[in-house]
Computed example of a mutant assay.
Amino acid sequence: MEEKDLKILAKNLANPEGETGIKVGEMMNATNIGMTLESIKTLLVEDDEHILEIGHGNAADVKSLLHLAQNLKYTGIDISETMNSEAKRLNENFKSQAEFILYEGKKLPFEDKVFDKIFTVNTVYFWENPKEYLNEIYRVLKDNGTFVLTFAQRDFMETLPFTLYDFKLYNSDEMQEIVSESYFKRMKISEKEEQVQSKAGTETVTRLYTVLTIKK
């Protein structure tokens, strides 16, 4: 891909817009589904819980999440107007249980201690101030809640040409250090790998990623 195409891809991975954004959202859902399902499994979802997903994309995975337990409520937030619209369209049948909120990406628009479980996949590269954002997540998580933070590791991400443009990359140790500087007190780390289709081409690559299970 040429530089201008890589920049367009990078921009739409951070904040999908328009028709290109819809296509990128579909591609993200397909390539990230393994990481997303692993994150949801790690949450250990139980009946009657309220779950927040940060950076929901097109939210094509919400149906499978809602079937994991009884009487679940799902809230998804995203900075992309395009993904907000797509998520609502794709989950029209679940609007009694699932809501999608557009926000500015810094302050979570919720009261304190609202959510039982929170998860986010491949969004940390775009957090402007990670420690402050983690403290926002801490604020809206219940005292006995679980936050699952999942991201592809620096060594893998550096092999992808589009990450040169406005991506902040981390390895497991770096992210653990940032979390330890936030209000959160406990975390468990799990490192995984999977075979995925490259976003910038058609080849299959081995993705190394980290799942952090974080508690107060």
Rank of each mutant, 00 (worst) to 15 (best):
L6P: 01
L6Y: 11
I8E: 05
L9R: 06
E19W: 02
T20P: 07
M28Q: 08
I33V: 11
M35Q: 12
T36S: 14
E38Y: 03
L43N: 05
E46Y: 09
D47Y: 08
D48V: 11
E49S: 07
E53W: 03
A59I: 10
A59Y: 10
V62I: 08
V62C: 05
S64N: 10
H67S: 01
H67L: 09
L68M: 12
L72N: 02
K73S: 10
I77L: 00
S80W: 06
S80I: 01
S80P: 01
M83L: 06
S85N: 07
F94K: 12
E104Q: 15
K107R: 15
D112S: 11
F115V: 00
I118G: 03
K131N: 14
L134V: 14
V140S: 08
T150I: 05
Q153S: 15
E158H: 15
L160T: 04
D166R: 13
Y170Q: 04
N171W: 08
D173H: 06
Q176W: 01
K185S: 12
K185W: 09
K188L: 06
K188R: 15
S190H: 04
E191Q: 07
E193P: 03
G201T: 13
T204A: 15
Y209Q: 10
Y209R: 09
T210R: 03
T213Q: 14
I214A: 11
